[in-house]
Every structure is written in structure tokens, then in C-alpha cells.
């Protein structure tokens, strides 16, 4: 959060319109938004638009290359790859959202507490650093191994792994904001520290939280794909991009379409999120640019 926003006069200028104009002034953001809209529309309309039932088996049609009836070909059970990719979008987005809620919710809370209370900070930050430094995927796999593979395990595991990143970013913003005069003023006129934290500090660290949310979303889509690919994610019956890639591994030599299309879907989603997130960061928080 920059100081400039709190100088007198900063209040006079309307904030909302320039922000959107600034955000969408870059080609990258427009491309990113376009990709995201495409993925979102696919996820919402998968039931209506998908040419076939994603789980309909037709063994006589197995491993057919892309054609006019099956635009992305069929897999080893004769299921339509395009329909599975479309339904996979839903799995990825739902899990991505849930991971963002868990990671950003808990991460922001811990970031607020560690940034504001130095005594909590001493202990909690060491724990969070320890959690953050460890290879996230390994920890998520180990957690899936202990808890059993399922969609909710994916959310818990990825949420735990990404939460410290949010906490660290929020903490560093809180360290700046808590020294500002209006926080001191709030406490001086008798507000409790907890009140000052949630009423005055939280609203002023929202922009880094929003920026982090967009990046956590992209990590979560990649993480879910990796966990499902390794058999530690969503159950194989559910159409998911990671599961589809796991199945494609056996047939990669004879059925390239099974491996190519789900991966392209992942890349389109993550690229959209990254481009959008970069734009958000530049528009909301110019100081974070170099990270």
C-alpha cells in the first residue's frame, strides 16, 4: 500500500473508473481476461455444449484420432475427449476456488496476526517459513497419502501448502500499514487493537490479498493437475485434466490427442490467470512489480 493514497486530496479523485482503465490498458490483461472468460464459459456450459456424455463408454470407438464427430478424438474407453476436457474445466475451477478460499482465508488471518502482534510473529512465522520452504508438491502428496486421495484432500493439502505464501505477503503489508498515523489514532481514541486491526489495517492490505488470490488460483490449477496425475488427487472416475493426462501416459505413443488437449486446457487456464494476475498486481500495487 503506498503512502500517496492516504494524503489529503487522494480522497478527491474517484478511484474505481481509473483503476479499471489502468487494468485493461494492457494487451496482456485483455488476452488473459479473454482466456479466463473462455474457460469459465466452458465450465458453466459443459452440460449444454459438450457434444457427448463425458463418461459414456463406447469401446468400439476406442482411441479414435480427432475427426468431425470427435473433435479431440476418443480415449481408451471410447469416451469423447472434448467433452471430458470441457467437464474437466469444472473440476479444475471448483477445486481452484476452494483452494483459494482456504489458502487466502487462513493465510490472510495468519498474516494479519503475525504482522500486528510481534509475540505471535516470533513463533508462527518460523512455522510458516518451515512449511513454505518444503517442496509443496511432496508435502501435498504425503498429506494425500495419509488422508486418502479425494477432492477434499486435494483442497486441504494444496490449501495448507499455499497458505504460508499469502501469510508472508499480508504480513509484510501489515508491517507497513500498522505504523501509519490513522492506526495510531484509532488506538489513541480508545479503539482496541483487534478493532484497529480488522477495521483499519485489513481494508488497507486488501490489494496484496487480491493479487495473491489470483496467483494462488493458478498454482492450485497446476497443483490439482499434478496430484490427480499422480493418483493422489480427485478420483479417476471424475473427469479432470490431471486424470486424463495420467490415462494418456500409457497410450502416448499411439494416441497423441489424449495427451495434448488436456494439457493445452491447463495451459490456457493458468496462462489466463497469470496474465490477469500480473496486470492486477501492476494496477493495484506498483511497488510489488519486481517480485
Amino acid at each position: 500500500m503506498s503512502m500517496a493514497a492516504h494524503e489529503p486530496g487522494a480522497w478527491a479523485e474517484p478511484r474505481k473508473a481509473p483503476f479499471l482503465a489502468k487494468l485493461f490498458s494492457r494487451t496482456n490483461v485483455i488476452i488473459g481476461t479473454g482466456l479466463l472468460v473462455l474457460v469459465l464459459a466452458t465450465a458453466f456450459s459443459a452440460d449444454l455444449l459438450a457434444p457427448a456424455d463425458p463418461n459414456a463408454l463406447a469401446v468400439q470407438n476406442r482411441l479414435k484420432p480427432p475427426s468431425s464427430t470427435h473433435l479431440m478424438g476418443t480415449d481408451e474407453f471410447g469416451r469423447d475427449v472434448l467433452s471430458r476436457v470441457m467437464h474437466g474445466a469444472r473440476t479444475s475451477l471448483v477445486i481452484g476456488c476452494a483452494v483459494v478460499l482456504v489458502a487466502v482465508g487462513i493465510g490472510s488471518l495468519l498474516g494479519l496476526l503475525t504482522g500486528f502482534y510481534s509475540r505471535i510473529d516470533m513463533v508462527l512465522s518460523r512455522i510458516l517459513d518451515g512449511l513454505m520452504s518444503f517442496p509443496g508438491l511432496v508435502l501435498a502428496i504425503a498429506m494425500a497419502g495419509v488422508l486418502g486421495a479425494s477432492s477434499s484432500t486435494v483442497v486441504i493439502a494444496l490449501g495448507t501448502v499455499y497458505m504460508p505464501r499469502v501469510a508472508r505477503v499480508v504480513r509484510s503489508s501489515v508491517l507497513v500499514v500498522r505504523e501509519l498515523p490513522y492506526v495510531e489514532a484509532c488506538i489513541a481514541v480508545g479503539g482496541s487493537r483487534l478493532y484497529a486491526l480488522f477495521r483499519h489495517v485489513l481494508p488497507n492490505v486488501l490489494s496484496p490479498i487480491i493479487v495473491q488470490a489470483s496467483f494462488i488460483f493458478s498454482y492450485a490449477v497446476l497443483g490439482e493437475a499434478a496430484l490427480s496425475f499422480l493418483g493422489a488427487g480427485v478420483p479417476p472416475t471424475q473427469p479432470s485434466w490431471g486424470n486424463m493426462l495420467a490415462e494418456s501416459r500409457t497410450f502416448v505413443v499411439m494416441a497423441w490427442w489424449m495427451a495434448v488437449f488436456p494439457g493445452v486446457a491447463i495451459m490456457v487456464t493458468v496462462l489466463g490467470l497469470n496474465l490477469f494476475g500480473d496486470g492486477l498486481r501492476d494496477a493495484l500495487d506498483p511497488k510489488m512489480r519486481e517480485r
Binding site: S218, A225, S248, A259, P262, G263, M267, V270, L271
Partner: peptide, 13 residues
Amino acid sequence: SMPEFWFGLMLIL
């Protein structure tokens, strides 16, 4: 923006 393991599959192809 892409998973390593998918890139690996593409390199195999």
C-alpha cells in the same frame, strides 16, 4: 504456465 509433467509428455511425443 504449464505443468512439467505435461511438457515431459510433449517432449516424448
